Amino acid sequence: MAAISRKHHYLPEFYLKGFTGEDGKLAVFDIENNRLKTKRLTPSQIFFEYDRNTLEFDGVKDDFVEKMYSQLETIVGHAFKKIKEQKSFSYLDAQDMFRIILFAGSLYWRIPKTDNLIKSEFENSSPDELYFEIRNKITGEKAPEDFINIIKKNDAFIKSYRAIKPVLDYMHQFDVSKIEDWKVYYATINDKGERKELHLIGDNPIIFRNPSNTDIFHQEIIMPLSCGKTLYHTRGKDVKVVEPTARIDVDRILFLQSKKYVCGPDGSYLEKIAEHASLYKDISPQAAEFLRNRVFDVFYDNTN
């Protein structure tokens, strides 16, 4: 039997490459120990867990969930390649935007932050709400409720479901007519003609207007796609000119909501943002909420 993969990234390597320095490596700030790591790491060396997506059936291990993620990465990789190649503007056709949006949904349910959330949602929702059903392959009859309840507590089934959940949500909840509400913006050029690519990446990289709402397709979000590119879901609003200060605020929020690591191309910038973020954390929860609201001030209603 062929060996299965064990090193499973919850932030894909191709995604992390957009946040590396010229050496192809990342500066890493260790949040738990409150320090910048002395060694720069490659994308393959961070944001992974061994056997995170490994399943076991009757004593036999399988990594087909990891293969599912790999297939998705292949699909969205084309759009990220196009974004990387574009220097001064974003021109993505509808198919590319669909891929980026699907990737955002997948990433949210792939990170450790949502481990307990996916278990709770899975256990407390009906099969209809989860968009699946289990039937006897011979008779075609639906499985009894007690069997469903057992399955819903099975770790292998939960891991499988979390991999396909973004696709199911995308199919059942995403409004194709609202594609224009999703926008990719590039870092602004300063008065010296320089493009300051600042964005960082952390283990919880999607910023929600309302963190208690997990429906990524129906609320405003901000998500760094690379150091200089950002995905916005505006929900019908417009986006003001995004000044460097607004982008720095995004990095501060990323620090506040990450638990283990935050990375970027430049170590000194990482340390500065860590210091800024700690000030907001030390003041009060209201200070952090004020910062979140300020981050979304770049959205404005154009109907008035």
Score class of each variant (00 low, 15 high):
176 V>S: 14
44 S>M: 07
137 K>W: 15
106 S>N: 12
96 D>S: 15
281 K>R: 15
200 L>Q: 03
169 D>N: 08
138 I>V: 15
209 R>G: 05
154 N>R: 04
213 N>E: 09
66 E>Q: 08
257 Q>N: 05
301 D>W: 05
72 L>V: 08
67 K>D: 03
190 N>C: 11
196 K>Y: 01
298 V>F: 03
41 L>M: 13
4 I>R: 06
130 L>H: 07
24 G>F: 03
156 A>F: 01
115 D>N: 09
31 I>M: 09
170 Y>Q: 01
244 P>Q: 06
110 R>K: 14
116 N>W: 03
272 K>M: 13
94 A>V: 09
196 K>E: 02
276 H>R: 11
207 I>F: 08
125 S>L: 02
150 I>N: 09
32 E>S: 10
304 N>C: 06
282 D>C: 06
91 Y>V: 06
32 E>L: 13
286 Q>N: 09
201 I>S: 00
232 Y>Q: 11
220 E>Y: 02
22 E>V: 10
159 K>G: 05
258 S>A: 11
284 S>A: 14
235 R>A: 03
245 T>R: 14
25 K>C: 03
56 E>F: 03
143 A>Y: 02
25 K>I: 06
134 I>Y: 07
58 D>I: 00
214 T>A: 07
234 T>L: 09
127 P>N: 12
214 T>Q: 13
242 V>N: 00
